[in-house]
Amino acid sequence: MSNVSDLFNYWVVVFLMMAGFYVVIAQGNLIKKLIGLSLFQASVFIFYISLGFVEGGIAPILEEGVSNYANPLPHVLILTAIVVSVATTAVGLALAVRIHEAYGSIEEDDIQTLDLEADDPDEAPSDKPEDSPR
């Protein structure tokens, strides 16, 4: 069992992650959800990078006479993960733009209401292909 103060760093990161996670699941605005998602992911990145940290080390670019380097592997993983995160955000934003065009709103409640109306037996409005402009 570790001393509590040593783990404090991790707990700050956990708090940040949960702040982002809360925004994703609790907010009704789609763009805000995406921002929350990015926040959540960015905080996971901080967690990973802190794994790679070595007390007294330097960035893993070799120099004469230095033998203590930060762990490069988490850095590589997170470079990939950052790219994945921004890719997801970009696709999410494009979807949000399309949703705004199709529904006239990016609030989750409005979209659900409109979908429930469309679920009525006749499904009249949604059968026309022109309904969703690309």
Partner: peptide, 23 residues
């Protein structure tokens, strides 16, 4: 600060730059 120069560079360019512009 955590000695991750490459990642810092990317986060600044992508997180602060590209993501904000797209948002």
């Amino acid at each position: 600060d955590l000695d991750a120069a490459d990642v810092a560079f990317t986060e600044a360019a992508v997180g602060a730059g590209v993501t904000t512009i797209l948002l």
